[in-house]
Design a protein around this nucleic acid. Structure first.
Lengths: 223, 223
DNA sequence: TGAAAATGATAGTAATACTATTATATTTGC
DNA sequence: GCAAATATAATAGTATTACTATCATTTTCA
């Protein structure tokens, strides 16, 4: 996908973990297989005990990396948004035309992810499915304000802000740039979900993509 | 709010419950206080045991109405969308101008709910908060396809379809009417959530409402 | 090579999400 | 007004979850 990034480490707020999973072999296995297991059985049924069994490791060892499965989800979520942000920054960096730039950004955040081998132990295609199915659970909690203060959502917010800037470059007088940016990103996930599970309330299918819908929506609004 | 509805019973798919909570005093207390308790401690911490304590009733009695707390959430969600649907139908019924009609519909699905005393034991203001905070959890599960087949989401889908029809009345050639309708409804909830917890990524606040943003978005897109 | 760090194994706890059984109220139909 | 039916309450029990704590073993690396 973006070869430039091959040696780059995706950086996640360090309060999310107890011990950086990137710092050891076990840590990387935890990330790699938690993604596969959550995709397989869903976040609600996912436990550290089951993950331990899957990777032939001990439950207590996993607790040395993450204080709870919720923190692990926050980690995966931050990692995903950081990864997307890099894609977005590189893909739009040299685009001078504001409309083209935003359109490219929309393409990045709405597209169906394809195999990316830059970060060997993480399967971005599967992670994308997890984000579609589980991401809301990372912030729809009673602790959200506290966790927000701790900085657990900075990367996501930064991504939205980047999109807001691109929107304002097209139309500096548009009053809802932040809301539009957050709606594009949320709606992209939602339309992908509907396409899989509620086909009767979306136009998205094999031919029409969330990108088609959202780029059309955005460009018409800012026109 | 809409006085015509005073004697109407909101109808929820009957596979969701074991025994209709509307059919007894205890049932109504379960609904009334589950809304208050979920709002208070969040759905994740909510248990039937705690609810039993709150209403001075027994955990096992609650299980005779709902097989799990997940089913109770599905009930509350269906009830909410059915209630909204009635509001929408009555508010738009006599509006002949297509633009005005859709605008009214957007107003209904985006507005901050105010006290409605038509259904005495249900506090719609609090229920609306629950929908904003917990609704996604009702369908972001591994069982969604099965539950969808069982008809647990018909009311929500019907509401989206009503909005789609209104969109197509304005512009019959618009290709994304379903996606736009589902986006309006989801984004309304999401913007309300952001307004409460992530003010830095929304333009919505005390002056600018999700209605302002979404009606502007919709009318420009269909123009 | 020896100390420190990481991991594994085991045990334990309080809470969750139920099911089952039996006892006690309450409703209702005659 | 009373018996039968129905609803609710009380109690107990189970497997699982979401951890914490302790101690043993293995790996790392200075």
């Amino acid at each position: 996908m973006i070869e430039l990034l091959s040696n780059l480490k995706i950086s996640v707020p360090d309060k999310i973990f107890i011990k950086d999973p990137e710092s050891s072999k076990l840590g990387k296995r935890i990330i790699e297989y938690s993604i596969l297991l959550i995709d397989e059985i869903g976040f609600d049924s996912f436990t550290f005990k089951k993950l331990g069994q899957k990777i032939g490791s001990n439950e207590s060892s996993i607790y040395r990396y993450f204080e709870s499965k919720h923190k692990l989800l926050l980690y995966l979520s931050s990692w995903y948004w950081a990864w997307l942000e890099y894609q977005l920054v590189f893909a739009t960096h040299n685009v001078s035309d504001a409309n083209e730039k935003l359109d490219k950004a929309i393409e990045i955040v709405t597209r169906t992810i394809e195999k990316d081998s830059n970060f060997s132990h993480i399967d971005e295609v599967v992670l994308n499915r997890i984000i579609i199915n589980e991401n809301s659970k990372s912030y729809l909690t009673k602790e959200v304000d506290l966790e927000n203060k701790e900085g657990y959502f900075v990367i996501y917010k930064r991504l939205i802000n980047r999109m807001k800037d691109m929107i304002l470059q097209i139309n500096p007088k548009y009053s809802y740039a932040l809301s539009l940016a957050s709606t594009i990103v949320e709606s992209a996930l939602h339309q992908h979900f509907l396409k899989e599970h509620f086909q009767s309330i979306t136009n998205c299918n094999d031919e029409i993509t969330p990108y088609n819908f959202l780029s059309h929506l955005t460009l018409n609004t800012l026109r």
